[in-house]
Design a protein around this nucleic acid. Structure first.
Lengths: 153, 153
DNA sequence: GCGATTTAGTTGAGCATTCAACAACCTGAG
DNA sequence: CTCAGGTTGTTGAATGCTCAACTAAATCGC
């Protein structure tokens, strides 16, 4: 027996469409700015950020995939690209012969340092400047709830 | 004289990262589900939805680009793809000889009708089921504010 | 009207992501 | 120890997106 679809009510519909529009516009804008100013897409910038924060500025490929929320394949392609740009280097993992360690080069760190202020300014202008402190708090709770919910299913 | 970067404070940092994680996970999940169940990415599904809601199930290419929040180029490629799938047809615009009108075919409507229940169920499961009614309201306000803010800059 | 500018849409090249297949290695049950 | 099954990471093909360049047609200024 077929189950009736629980359609979205008008409020939900409106929320969903506004969310789609806003998040797409935000990410598109930041992506375009980063591409223009730093010559890389946002996903690549995030890889450099995560490496820069890791002890020794290095991470196992699988851990890097985990924290950046990307598939192994995507990360593999991305790191290959970052490697030819000279921003990342790959080395064999000493404790697991299957493993690879990605590590941020000096050039990569310099590029990241040059790109960061402009990008942070963009995040501030396009996101935080538009919201009240209460809304920032709401957005954090909502996002954390969603992230939790999505990784558990 | 250089302006000091206004870095994100810890709360903002946490909010930004949670938002990135959540919105990426949500869109990736829905994209994967739609690709699996309907054979198309979410962006294409949205095109079909907008066409299905338009009078005569048709829209000018530029209007369709507007409502789906995509560039003309992206839409052009997408509609070309949807046309070879037989879900959309293009006709000359009668009032503007530069123009093209995209229109949803019967096959496109049927495909959309078949895909919609599953997709709506996904949106409900992955988004609305995780949030309280108050949070849905907050998310709507935040998203509408952001969308407004982003189109004005 | 008529040239300059703007707008509509397409195209191709280059890049990013996905998916499936794969090789290499680790781990654990017996 | 051994082999079955899981994990790690890469690869190539197919697909989608971006950007810049382009054609054609409408519109604006005079």
């Amino acid at each position: 027996m077929p189950v009736m679809t629980r359609w979205l009510d008008p409020d939900e519909q409106r929320t969903w469409r506004a969310f789609l529009t806003a998040s797409r516009a935000l990410m598109d804008t930041l992506d375009r700015e980063l591409q223009r100013d730093a010559g890389m897409p946002h996903a690549y910038y995030e890889i450099l950020v995560r490496l820069s924060e890791a002890p020794g500025r290095q991470l196992r490929m699988s851990d890097l995939a985990e924290v950046t929320g990307s598939s192994r394949s995507r990360l593999s392609h991305a790191v290959a690209r970052l490697e030819t740009a000279g921003w990342v280097r790959r080395e064999d993992c000493p404790t697991d012969r299957r493993g690879q360690v990605a590590l941020l080069t000096e050039a990569g760190y310099a590029t990241l340092s040059a790109a960061a202020p402009g990008h942070v300014e963009g995040v501030r202008r396009h996101l935080f400047d538009a919201l009240s402190p209460a809304q920032v708090d709401q957005l954090r709770r909502i996002s954390e709830t969603l992230a939790e919910h999505l990784t558990r299913s």
